[in-house]
Amino acid sequence: MATPLLQVHNLNVEAGGNRILTGIDLEIAPGEVHAIMGPNGSGKSTLAHVLAGREGYDITAGEVLYEGRNLLELEPEERARGGVFLAFQYPVEIPGVNNTYFLKAAVNAVRKHRGETELDAMDFLALVKEKMKLLEMDDSLLNRPVNEGFSGGEKKRNEILQMALLDPRLAVLDETDSGLDIDALRIVARGVDSMRGAERSFLVVTHYQRLLDYIVPDHVHVLANGRIVKSGGKELALELEEKGYSWIDDEVVKEAR
């Protein structure tokens, strides 16, 4: 097996004195798609945000290695430039900042870090329009302020657009499917699917199995009460869909005894 792209060892996270994640272990090899499923409040989004570098969490134990380096000591922008991407569950609206300006600033920040030449307005526009076509996004979204007044589906597509532009090695999708109707879901999933490759890995955080019909995972982990209580192949997602999350609670209780 190839060297893992991401290694999470015994990760313990608290916020405001509350324990949110307890002893998370996770390894993702290049090209793999891992899904993290779990009920609300299980700590799924916390894991996603900790990987992206959000402040306000205390890492009380454990480590996270990305490409063999300590990820947790890097600033959010350093992680992004290094190839870690987080698609937000709730993309932030930024009134007053034009979407094109934002996308171009992001792309060029990452390109600069990689030693590539920065794109000028023309080249950037050509690139962004090509990617938008795949996501069936309207060009008018380029001239609007970032996410402001976007519908739920437009916001999620804008996230995937950013992912496509920034070309990450590790993409963390935080409940990208939540709140999407089936058509939007299909478009978003197609965008993600088109980016799968031997060098790119995905961590797909979701509450519903539905997304995994379109983005078929290599591994599925079930998160409950801040711990990974079960791991398995893609069939585990189907099992969850069938039985719901309640049986996990039973297993957790059993385990505690």
């Binding site: 600033e75 922008e77 430039r81 937000f88 007053g96 934002f102 600033a105």
Partner: peptide, 22 residues
């Protein structure tokens, strides 16, 4: 908003300026 910009590779100082301009 600042965190959002930073997760896209934009450094903290530039994020601050962009948001001030905005």
């Amino acid at each position: 908003a600042s965190f959002y910009l930073r997760t896209r590779g934009i450094d903290a100082d530039t994020a601050r300026r962009i948001l001030t301009y905005a």
